[in-house]
């Protein structure tokens, strides 16, 4: 598989195409749709899987960045998603109505334009929060030079505390963004596309391309990749690893928060446990793509999204996370370094 991917990349380079994550995503979607044309697979499920994959991708790419650069499994990543979703709820459901900004059903979408105002604000807030948590908790552990598992353990504590906080503020019941019911688009082959899904996919594509540009073109992006490669060498090269860590959190948490908001829009509800439940697909995508490889996580996300949706054709839909888990275990068994073989095992 890894060799195949390399061959494809080399061929692409030779015919003058730079192989970017945008190409990768297009290739994945094309392959996924091809799978959908198989007679025993329902196209509708494949399409749903692509939408789900887009949300998983945002979460997983952020998770793998943190994993690669800070070298620990951030158990609280799912709860950063939850925080993003609830902060947005606070803005569209409480803050904005106070100043008379209300609305739902923007164009074909269920949500209103206030959500578009709230999204960047909430994302910025979560990013800032992640940097603060890093200063309070993780930096002190890094300075002490503790084992990475202890850092993961601390992130479990952060995850629990964050979920408690969400429940204290908003309670444990189902919440919703202000929404209008909207007609889904009916396409051939029994494919139903909710308009919101188009919004979700568009946001995901924009963010992934933006991330690619940051990592590939900016000094900080290159420094992040360098630090993921070899933290000690980054230090003696004079790379400001403090800023690298801060930017990693800003970007990782921003992607997580966006994923949380999009998830809340897609499933049309919020629950305090929504992010925690998403951890398994997120980690499965990260492991599939190889830890620390954002483009790998992208591929992994779509594989997990499509596979777990299509699996519902044969098995009980509530086993979807178990399917993601099974894929991850299978991957660990055959290729622990991920599809592309570059990750760390």
């Amino acid at each position: 598989m890894g060799r195949l991917v390399t061959t494809i990349q080399d061929t692409a380079r030779r015919i003058g195409l730079a192989w970017t994550p945008a190409h990768t995503s297009v290739a994945i979607v094309v392959i996924a749709l091809a799978v959908g044309f198989l007679p025993f697979v329902k196209m509708g499920l494949v399409v749903n899987g692509v939408f789900l994959g887009a949300i998983i991708a945002l979460g997983a790419v952020g998770l793998t960045l943190v994993y690669g650069i800070l070298n620990f499994a951030n158990i609280a990543h799912g709860d950063y998603m939850t925080m993003g979703a609830y902060t947005t709820l606070f803005i569209v459901g409480y803050l904005l109505p106070k100043v008379g900004v209300e609305g739902s059903g923007l164009g074909p979408f269920t949500f209103g334009y206030p959500l578009l105002i709230a999204l960047p604000v909430a994302v910025a807030a979560i990013s800032a929060g992640a940097v603060v948590v890093d200063m309070m908790v993780y930096r002190r552990l890094r300075d002490r030079g503790v084992n990475t598992v202890v850092v993961s353990m601390a992130s479990l504590g952060v995850a629990i505390a964050l979920r408690g906080l969400v429940q204290i503020i908003w309670g444990g019941d189902i919440e919703r963004y202000p929404r209008e019911t909207r007609q889904v688009f009916h396409l051939p082959m029994d494919v139903r596309v909710p308009p919101d899904a188009i919004f979700i996919t568009t946001v995901a594509i924009i963010l992934v391309v933006a991330l690619y540009l940051v990592l590939d073109r900016t000094k900080m992006g290159k420094a992040m990749r360098a630090t993921a490669d070899n933290p000690d060498l980054a230090l003696v090269s004079g790379i400001d690893t403090g800023s690298v860590v801060r930017w990693t959190w800003v970007m990782g948490a921003a992607l997580a928060a966006t994923a949380g908001i999009l998830l809340a829009v897609y499933q049309a509800h919020l629950l305090p446990i929504m992010g925690w439940k998403f951890l398994i697909p997120l980690f499965a995508a990260v492991v599939l793509g190889g830890i620390g490889n954002p483009y790998g996580a992208l591929v992994g996300a779509f594989v997990i999204g499509v596979t777990s949706e299509v699996s519902t054709q044969w098995i009980n839909p509530s086993y979807k996370p178990a399917v993601a888990f099974a894929i991850m275990i299978g991957m660990l068994l055959v290729r622990p370094r991920g599809i592309f073989g570059g990750g760390r095992s």
């Binding site: 290159k222 990749r225 360098a226 490669d229 980054a234 090269s237 004079g238 790379i239 400001d240």
Partner: peptide
């Protein structure tokens, strides 16, 4: 300082390695 082993960033290009040296 140039360490003895793992003294380059393997997934970065030659030019990017030099840019990191100039961080």
């Amino acid at each position: 300082y140039v360490p003895q082993t793992s003294n380059v960033f393997p997934s970065l290009t030659i030019r990017e390695n030099l840019e990191m040296g100039a961080f």
